[in-house]
């Protein structure tokens, strides 16, 4: 028996954070990919939040990132499946956020890279432009993380000092 996959060995990887209720975004991206890669099999990386939406949108081949195994194991599995094309599905048309998915897209080593908007639009991008996006967003994330650490660190010092100055904790003494 000749399977569909054997007739067309192309595999496209769909990367999305879409949740239940956002199935149309996934369907739109999938349709846009079908136009560029007719007959290709689609698979996706799913989180616990996105898995129900992906299944409801008809994507059953999922690599699940649910905390039961490491992110590097998931990345290795994605690369082992050798996708020919990868699409990152954004929740806005300005292509903001989604750094985690862009890193997976880079790691997948797919030849064709697309970004899809919530309206089903599709835009091809080069590996270099994906690298640039990852670099800029990585810097943004690092700066934000620094600001967050400053805020949480300030709070931590302030609160712990107040706690220390107020004397004993009855629960601890008990």
């Amino acid at each position: 028996m000749v399977t569909e996959q054997a007739e067309n060995p192309e595999r496209v990887l769909l990367l999305t954070f879409a949740r239940r209720g956002e199935e149309d975004v996934i369907r739109g991206a999938r349709a846009a990919l079908q136009e560029a890669h007719p007959g290709a099999t689609a698979f996706a990386v799913a989180t616990t939040e996105s898995e129900p939406a992906l299944r409801a949108a008809g994507i059953s081949e999922l690599v699940t990132l649910d905390g039961s195994r490491s992110a590097s194991a998931v990345l290795r599995e994605v690369a082992a499946r050798r996708p020919t094309a990868v699409a990152v599905v954004y929740s806005d048309s300005a292509w903001q956020g989604h750094l985690k998915l862009e890193i997976v897209a880079l790691w997948s080593r797919a030849r064709a890279i697309y970004r899809c908007g919530p309206d089903g639009s599709r835009q091809a991008m080069t590996r270099a432009s994906l690298w640039a996006s990852v670099a800029v967003k990585g810097l943004q994330a690092a700066l934000r993380l620094g600001a967050g650490a400053l805020a949480a660190g300030t709070a931590f010092c302030w609160l712990r000092t107040a706690q220390a100055l107020s004397g004993g904790n009855r629960a601890d003494r008990a």
Binding site: Y90, S91, H98, A141, R144, L145, G148, A151
Partner: peptide
């Protein structure tokens, strides 16, 4: 809590 500040970039919305 410190890590939350990067979530808008790492994830989205």
């Amino acid at each position: 809590q410190a890590r939350w500040t990067a979530d808008d970039v790492l994830i989205s919305d």
